[in-house]
C-alpha cells in the first residue's frame, strides 16, 4: 500500500499536522526521564516495520508538502544549496544512494532503471520522469546534489575528509534549526560545532570526530538530536530569523498545545563509495504538544525532561521563553507514574 501524501503548509497558515500513524512512528528521542548530550551514535540498521528507521531513507506522509516548501525556500534564497567544486564526485554518490534507496523501498512511488550509465528515474508523487547519464552533470536540469535533494525529505551535508579532519564542503540546507550553510560552508568539524555548549568540555565532540573519521562504507550510523519550534515551521534559519524569532512571543496557555512543537532530527551518516566523503542527513520530524500527549508515556516523560534540562542547553536551543508554559501544559498529562525504559510507546 502506498503512502497518502497530505496537502499542508509549514508557513503562513501552518496547516501541518500528523496522522495517528505518524504520531505513533514519531522518533521520540528520550529513552529515560533526563537528557544530556552524549555520543549517541548507533549503527543505522533497519528497525521495526512502519517505524521511522524501517528503511535507510524515510519517506512519509509529509513528503510532497515538504518538497514544495523546499522549492519555495530555494526560490527566495538560492544560497541554501551550495557545493564547492571538489565535491562533484560526492554529489553523484549521493544521487546513487538516494535514488537506489527510495526506489528499492518505495517502489510504488519511485523507480530507477539503469542501462550502464544511462539512468531513468521516475518520481510519481512529484510527477518527474528523467533520463540522464550518471556522471554527466549536463544531462540533469540541476547540479546532481541539488537535483536529488529537491526530491528527498531531509537536509543533507556533504563532508570531505582531509588529514584526519572533516569539512562541510557542500549541502542542501532548508529545514535547519538555526544554523546557516552559507556561514558554515568550508568550515571544519571543530569550527562549525563552535557554538555548541558543554559538549566540547565533556570530550563528546572529540570522540564523535574520531569515530566518524573511521566510518566505513556499508556501515552507516545514526543519532537523534532535538530542539523545539514554535509553529510547524521547517525553515528556522538565521537568514529568516526576522520571520520566526517573534513566534516565540506568541505562545499563550491557550495555544501552547497546538503551537509548540518538539523538533527531532534523525541524523544518519554514510561513507560514500567514489569520493570517500561522508553524507550527513538531517531528517526533521515535528510534533505538536497536543499530539505528543496522545502517547501517555511521552506525555509523562517530556515535562520531566524539560524541567531537568541544563540551563545552557535550554538557552542554546532557544526555548527559555516558553519552557515554563509548556511544562505547565504537559504536567496535566503527567500523573507521576514511573515510565518504562526505552524510546517506544508502551
Amino acid at each position: 500500500m502506498g503512502l497518502q501524501f497530505k496537502t499542508e503548509t509549514f508557513r503562513d497558515d501552518f496547516t501541518f499536522s500528523n496522522s495517528p500513524e505518524a504520531i505513533h512512528r514519531f522518533p521520540f528521542p528520550f529513552d529515560s526521564d533526563s537528557y544530556m548530550y552524549s555520543v549517541n551514535i548507533e549503527q543505522h540498521m533497519p528497525g521495526p516495520p512502519k517505524s521511522h528507521v524501517e528503511f535507510p531513507i524515510d519517506i512519509d506522509e509529509h513528503y510532497v508538502a515538504e518538497m514544495q516548501d523546499r522549492a519555495m525556500v530555494l526560490k527566495e534564497d538560492p544560497l541554501r544549496c551550495q557545493a564547492l567544486p571538489h565535491m562533484l564526485t560526492a554529489e553523484w554518490d549521493l544521487v546513487e544512494l538516494l535514488m537506489e534507496s527510495m526506489s528499492k523501498h518505495y517502489p510504488e512511488h519511485f523507480s530507477l532503471t539503469k542501462d550502464g550509465d544511462r539512468w531513468h528515474w521516475v518520481n510519481r508523487p512529484l510527477g518527474i520522469d528523467q533520463r540522464f547519464t550518471f556522471g554527466d552533470t549536463a544531462t540533469l536540469p540541476y547540479p546532481p546534489m541539488e537535483y536529488v535533494t529537491r526530491q528527498c525529505q531531509g537536509d543533507f551535508a556533504l563532508i570531505d575528509q582531509r588529514n584526519d579532519m572533516l569539512f562541510m564542503d557542500a549541502g542542501m540546507i532548508t529545514t535547519q534549526a538555526d544554523w546557516s550553510l552559507d556561514f558554515d560552508i568550508g568550515m571544519s568539524w571543530t569550527e562549525w560545532h563552535g557554538p555548541v555548549p558543554l559538549a566540547h568540555d565533556l570530550g563528546i565532540m572529540d570522540r564523535a570526530l574520531k569515530f566518524l573519521l573511521n566510518l566505513q562504507q556499508g556501515r552507516p550510523v545514526r543519532r537523534l538530536n532535538w530542539t523545539m519550534t514554535v509553529n510547524p515551521r521547517l525553515d528556522t534559519s538565521p537568514e529568516n530569523y526576522h520571520k520566526w524569532g517573534v513566534d516565540r512571543t506568541t505562545v499563550t496557555p491557550e495555544n501552547v498545545g497546538d503551537k509548540v512543537h518538539l523538533r527531532v532530527e534523525l541524523q544518519a551518516l554514510w561513507r560514500l563509495p567514489r569520493s570517500n566523503a561522508i553524507v550527513f542527513s538531517i531528517r526533521c520530524y515535528l510534533i505538536k504538544m497536543s499530539e505528543l500527549v496522545t502517547i501517555p508515556k511521552w506525555g509523562r516523560r517530556f515535562p520531566r525532561i524539560l524541567k531537568g534540562l541544563p540551563p545552557e542547553l535550554a538557552e542554546y536551543k532557544g526555548l527559555t521563553r516558553y519552557r515554563d508554559m509548556t511544562i505547565k501544559y504537559l504536567e496535566q498529562f503527567d500523573d507521576g507514574a514511573p515510565t518504562s525504559p526505552g524510546f517506544f510507546p508502551d
Partner: peptide, 27 residues
C-alpha cells in the same frame, strides 16, 4: 552502541587480569 570505541556504552569493569590491557578506544 557504536562498536568503534567512541560512544562509551560498552565500558566494563575489569576485576582482574594477567598480562597487559591494550586500550584501542577513544573513550
Amino acid at each position: 552502541l557504536c562498536r568503534g570505541g567512541a560512544c562509551g556504552q560498552c565500558v566494563t569493569t575489569v576485576l582482574s587480569f594477567e598480562g597487559e590491557l591494550i586500550h584501542n578506544d577513544h573513550y
